[in-house]
Design a protein around this nucleic acid. Sequence first.
RNA 1: GCGGGCGUGGCGGAAUGGCAGACGCGCCGGACUUAGGAUCCGGUGGGUAACACCGUGUGGGUUCAACUCCCACCGCCCGCACCA
Length: 828
Amino acid sequence: MAGHYDFKMIETKWQEKWAITPPVEPDKARPKFYCLEMFPYPSGKLHMGHVRNYSIGDVIARFKTMSGHEVLHPMGWDAFGLPAENAAISHGIHPFRWTMDNIDRMRVQLKQLGISYDWRREIATCHPGYYRWTQWLFLQLFHRGLAYKKKATVNWCPSCATVLANEQVVGEGVCERCKTSVGKRELSQWFFKITDYAERLLSDLELLQGWPEKVRIMQENWIGKSTGAEIDFPLVGTPDKITVFTTRPDTLYGVTYMVLAPEHPLVEKLTAGTAGEAAVREFAARARAMSEMSRTSQDGEKVGMSTGAFCRNPLTGEDVPILIANYVLLEYGTGAVMGVPAHDQRDFLFARANGYPIRVVVEPPGAELDLESMQEAYEEEGVLVNSGPFSGLPSGEGKKAISGHLADMGAGRQKINYRLRDWLISRQRYWGAPIPIVYCESCGTVPVPEAELPVLLPMDVAFKPTGQSPLNDCPEFLHTTCPGCGGPARRETDTMDTFMCSSWYYYRYTSPRDETEAWSRTAVDRWLPVDQYVGGVEHAILHLLYSRFFTKVLNDAGLVSNREPFTNLLTQGMVLKDGTKMSKSKGNVVSPEEIVDRLGADTARLFILFAAPPERDLEWSDQGVEGCYRFLNRVYRLVEPLAGSLAGWTGSQPHAAALVGVHREIKRLVHQTIRRVTEDVEKRFNFNTAVSAVMELVNALYQYRDRVPEVDRRWDLLAEAVETLLLVLAPFAPHLTEELWQATGHGASVHATAWPRCDEEALQEDEVTVVVQLNGRIKDRVEVEAGLDAAGLEEKIMGLPQVQDLLVGKTVVKVIPVPDKLVNIVVR
RNA sequence: GCGGGCGUGGCGGAAUGGCAGACGCGCCGGACUUAGGAUCCGGUGGGUAACACCGUGUGGGUUCAACUCCCACCGCCCGCACCA
């Protein structure tokens, strides 16, 4: 395409130069800035979401560098995981080979984008030099009592043939990765006690003021703290009891039945040998099957049946029937609920449908509830009634009084419950970090000593879709000796959830090649916490919560100094095409490779930053990309022909006071642009408006060039303007700006040059346009001297003849002057 | 159901309570040209001959002044979803 700049030549040239001589070298004297983007899974190809993620990160990193920071900006690969193993099963390629080939391809693509990564720090989680430390971390948790193995009913994805953590079951009970409906299995698995940290993970959210509120709220809801009491209901006729968790001990007098989850262990005991045993068992089986299916298909219908047994209300001494019902979950609280139909909507629906009595014990202040006409449970605060000695108390006080009384009786206690479950980290798959544990007949479960790490993943294994780790079929791996007694032992064959590998990688970047420790304490203390983290909101819970958990454990262990890993978080929106997410099946995928090849990396980056603010979803537009390409060409055509003339004027900054007319206006616009771009990048992350500010400057410079005769041009001014243009555009379009920077006579890299400073004096205006309003409606615009105070402005405007004309026949009620902006005259 | 977000030209999007629609795309016109799907210049919310006037999802409210703040509602998107 004639007349277009040769982006291919320029981009290749600078990428090669920067690879040999990085434009910016480390400088410990500068304040640090750790800029991190979520590392990708090496699927084989970059997609537009990656381009967006890394373009945003690169603008921030380059801007911070130019603003005087020493910036850590690393990249790596989240390289363990299922797709590699599935490729092995279906195509016979070894996961290692598949992953490494993908990494090689994607690295090339990333380099073609010109992102300013420090490639010397590149890591891959599947490298033994990395996963050795993932295993070491497992041991740290193990030794602190935070890793344990237990038999449990766990989420099982039949398609991935492995277990999943609760966090990996999404939507209507489907697998986070493959969207297959998740089932249950009874398995002995390794867990991390993240629940020990529930309270701190919750309360420390307050420290994360640099995170989007949305993400903090999502984590808060996920942790799901609820405060209440546990209450014991003795079983009639046996020494056993049923314990319930409730947030409403004030409604204890309203209990008309007790409900157990169908899977509750007491159910068997209560019904053994009774006439209803078979029926109950059948119901429980059916409920279990139903809960495995989509929960929403039940449409919230509440069904249950009696066990025939009774328990005793500890306060009233009343015997209440024990039921089982599908709406009680074994996993939450104690798996048992006291039924208070008058004050809990679920109990209400269940009681109404199944004919259980409803007893009102809380009434709204100054009103009475009528059982007959009640359409729903009354769940609000109120005054206790029908509650023995507690009647008359407001429900808040009733809560305290009743729990206090129960505590005195030994029948209840304060209790805080969390929705958060422990993190299941075992995976029955090959392509992950082996769990460093061996099982010995005489010593039991034995951790592999640190000195023996890494537990290497054997390369020569068979890949079969069995639902068992291929490591089970690998005798060399399986059989080992016990580190304790030296006797024969068997290795753990499960590998770790890949989220474990990605929960600590940002520490490893600080000392990526260290072979003696996971990280150097000095390096971690220098760089952590991450100052800016950028990534998709889809990681709001899983990755970010796990990383916070790890950081707290490491902090407790004295291994890091920071309490939180990521100070500021930017969650970018998705890249859409035709209103929906790009996907192969919809055929609306735009390949970054093709865009870079056809229009260049600078264009691709610029468009993706310009098309929308970062948090919002971005609609891909082929024409919009062309527009950005045109803009960069405009920059090139503006600067390149002037380059020779400008070369002699580098660094010149004509004083604003020495300029008049159009020259002065250009000077002002140059500095307005500096101010706008700086604020948009630094404070608001509004890269779209930053780019538009630069576009306005370019438009103005074209006008200046075309309208000011060559003899009248101020070359010193033009040089300042072009320098500024290149500097503020550099983080967005690093290659073109570097090319033009060199062409205009600069020696050092534009990326190593200091960010321009806004000269306040240059912003000064002599005259401003003031809007004249009548009752808020615009009637006129007037040029007045800048800086007039309110009184001066009012006097000036009211004295104008055209303003007086507007006021003929009207009475001025009030005048509101806003200096340098407007005057609103209120008339009748 | 609960929690969060978003509704502005033909489109993507701008607007510390103070000139709605910056910037870009598209479209229209002009210049240059053998040519233009290159480039440059101008125009472009609706409405009108021109004014007036009407315009930020809908209806209220606060204010001298509301896209912006408050209340109610409608629509779309995201998260959680029988959490006791």
